[in-house]
């Protein structure tokens, strides 16, 4: 059921966005585990897939780092564009500590108001199944050690293109659980890793 209301060139079909939703949910339920988006249109959107697949007319979104993409996603979903601090869905194409710090975290009474944040990265290596993840050897990236619900023991993720202090900012935002933000690392070729607010993140 493709709606004639959604006319932007990026618009996902209802079923495509539902499949993306399922993949993103899978990623959050299994922190640090690699999930791959299959929809070509969603893959092309990069980190903005968070907004493209999940937003509708009632979802304020912020897409930081590419104004053209932001307006195209807004046109495709009819979602209003707002500053990072007011957005329910955020895509950071060049993640930076101060941008993460602006994202909403909700409160203990209203944790659902915490932002869902997509962070673009240029490289992403993580285990696909229950594996603990690879031992990367590139010196240019960051290795995260994850622990918490959905992770048996610990799990490692290797990321290129995001500075380590970004993850410290996420940990800071999540220090008052259940308030906090849920993040996805979005790499090339539709690779996604979820970092829900319940996950303890250590930058190795």
């Amino acid at each position: 059921m493709t709606s004639s209301f959604l006319t932007g060139s990026l618009a996902l079909s209802t079923h495509a966005s539902q499949r993306c939703f399922r993949s993103l949910l899978q990623a959050l339920a299994n922190p640090g585990q690699l999930v791959t988006l299959e929809e070509p249109d969603a893959v092309a959107a990069g980190a903005a897939v968070i907004a493209l697949a999940l937003a509708d007319i009632d979802t304020p979104v912020a897409i930081v780092g590419d104004e053209k993409l932001a307006s195209e996603v807004s046109e495709a979903t009819r979602a209003p564009l707002v500053p990072v601090g007011e957005a329910r869905l955020v895509a950071l194409l060049h993640p930076a500590r101060q941008l993460v710090a602006q994202c909403r975290t909700g409160s203990a009474e209203a944790p659902e108001l915490g932002a869902k944040v997509g962070l673009a990265c240029s490289g992403l290596v993580a285990g696909a199944g229950g594996e603990p993840g690879p031992e990367p050897n590139s010196p240019s990236g960051v290795t995260l050690v994850l622990e918490g619900p959905g992770v048996e023991g610990t799990r490692k993720v290797f990321i290129e293109g995001i500075e380590g202090d970004v993850f410290e900012a996420i940990a800071t935002s999540n220090r008052h659980f259940p308030a906090g933000l849920d993040a996805w690392l979005v790499g090339p070729e539709g690779n996604v890793v979820g970092l829900p607010r319940s996950t303890r993140i250590e930058v190795a």
């Binding site: 709606s3 966005s17 937003a55 509708d56």
Partner: peptide, 8 residues
Amino acid sequence: STLPRLAH
């Protein structure tokens, strides 16, 4: 709940 809101 699985469908997007298209308009008001």
